[in-house]
């Protein structure tokens, strides 16, 4: 029986399998992400969290299955999507300024051959202002701290003005001020009814940041509202032996329902 994937879901994944060199990384993924949620994807290292995002965005080939964005394939819905890659995925020594990177978020609407103009730069400046680093707009990106670099990526996603935001570990190795800025941004998206899908690695903060949770370990272990999904049993199923420190679980569970 084919599970239901109604078009009102911003993201619906059906029977997705991804394999590298014939070794499966993701198995039979079935997932519906409801409108307006802040969804966290959580799982151990090598669980395929980033792969799941990349497969949704057609960055790596799917072995089988389909991904629907509001009921349509991704190619038809690119305007609705913004992607924040992992910070390490690019060379921060590249000779561009923070503003130049953020302006890249406007290229799609600008189209082929057209030059970046005042309007695009203005939008980019506003986005940098919004993530709290407006004063660093003209700085070369290698001279930014890790947290500031992450915020440059977030500003670029802001400029894209999307409905669904795919974020790959935005909280990884950032300072407290950046963490706060990201949380505010997420809540801002949430208030506007946008949907966020965010790969996350820190169990202790899951229940504070996300209202929807996807527990992943090559397959979907559980998914649903955080209050129902974030349980000791599910975490054990996801992490198995890797989470042998029961204290970690206890610590993480303490935050449930806060």
């Amino acid at each position: 029986m084919r599970p239901e994937h109604p078009p009102e879901f911003p993201l619906a994944i059906h029977d997705l399998t991804v394999a590298y060199h014939r070794k499966p990384v993701l198995w039979d993924i079935e997932l519906n992400v409801p409108q307006g949620t802040l969804a966290g994807i959580v799982g151990p290292n090598g669980a395929g969290k980033s792969t799941l995002l990349k497969a949704c965005l057609d960055l790596i080939p799917k072995t089988s299955g389909e991904v629907l964005i509001y009921g349509k394939p991704y190619e038809d819905q690119r305007d609705l999507i913004a992607y924040v890659p992992q910070r390490e995925s690019v060379d921060w020594d590249f000779p561009v300024s923070a503003l130049d990177v953020v302006v890249m978020g406007t290229y799609r609407k600008l189209g082929w051959f057209k030059r970046v103009g005042k309007a695009q730069r203005q939008r980019a400046r506003e986005a940098l202002e919004q993530v709290g680093i407006g004063h660093l707009a003209d700085r070369q990106i290698s001279q930014l701290s890790g947290g500031q670099q992450q915020r440059v990526f977030l500003a670029r996603a802001l400029v894209q003005d999307a409905e669904i935001y795919f974020m790959d570990e935005p909280f990884a190795a950032v300072d407290a001020a950046t963490e706060q800025a990201i949380i505010e941004l997420l809540q801002n998206f949430n208030a506007k009814g946008k949907t966020v899908l965010c790969v996350h690695h820190d169990l202790a903060t899951v229940s504070r940041y996300f209202d929807h949770l996807v527990l992943l370990n090559m397959r979907i272990v559980a998914s649903g509202p955080t209050s129902e999904t974030f349980t000791r049993e599910n975490l054990h199923k996801t992490y198995g032996g890797k989470l042998n420190l029961l204290d970690d679980v206890a610590e993480a569970l303490k935050n449930v329902g806060r």
Partner: peptide, 20 residues
């Protein structure tokens, strides 16, 4: 192709998600 090449060289994955 200045703009397009810059995007390609800096962040090809992002460029790809944007339909380039």
């Amino acid at each position: 192709l200045l703009k397009e090449f810059t995007l390609l060289c800096f962040d090809a994955n992002f460029a790809s998600t944007e339909g380039w």
